[in-house]
Computed example of a mutant assay.
Amino acid sequence: MRPDPQETAPAKKQRRYWHRTDWLSLFSGLLFIGIGVRYLVEPPPNTGVMVLTLVFGLGFAGFFAVVSRAFRKR
């Protein structure tokens, strides 16, 4: 009778794959969720203010993503 292959094979260590955080996607998603909640909770705000909030928020997310990538490569 043959032994089970599981008994004779060396135990492999289970690798865990940790991926790097995509800061641009994370902050952009949080920004859009925040704007969506803002529209649901209160009356619609001034459109110009919301567009500026969106543009500056995406700019901040992009800036943070570039800075974090520069520090990651060091």
Rank of each mutant, 00 (worst) to 15 (best):
Q6Y: 06
F32C: 05
M50Q: 08
A9E: 11
K73Y: 14
I35N: 02
E42D: 11
F32R: 01
A70P: 06
S25M: 05
F64V: 13
F32P: 00
M50R: 04
D4G: 05
V49P: 02
K13P: 05
L54P: 02
V41T: 00
P44Q: 12
M50E: 12
G48D: 09
L54K: 03
A61H: 10
L24S: 05
R72Y: 15
P3E: 11
F32T: 01
S68Q: 14
R38G: 05
W18F: 15
V67T: 05
M1Q: 11
G34F: 01
N46D: 10
M50Y: 04
R15V: 15
R2W: 10
R74C: 08
P5Y: 08
A70R: 14
T53R: 07
H19S: 02
W23I: 06
G34R: 06
T8R: 04
W23Q: 08
F56C: 13
F63W: 14
S28L: 07
E42W: 02
L40N: 06
L30W: 03
G57E: 04
P43K: 13
R2P: 13
R38D: 06
I35R: 04
T53W: 06
R74T: 14
P10A: 07
F32A: 03
L26V: 10
W23Y: 11
G48H: 07
L40P: 02
P43S: 13
Y17K: 06
A11F: 10
R38A: 08
S28V: 03
A11T: 11
V41Q: 03
A70E: 14
V49T: 10
Y17C: 12
R16Y: 14
A65E: 10
N46K: 04
R15L: 15
T21S: 00
F71C: 14
Q14C: 14
Q14D: 15
K73I: 15
F56W: 14
T21K: 00
P10I: 09
Q14M: 12
G36Q: 02
V51S: 07
D22G: 01
R72K: 15
S28W: 00
V41W: 00
E7S: 05
G62M: 10
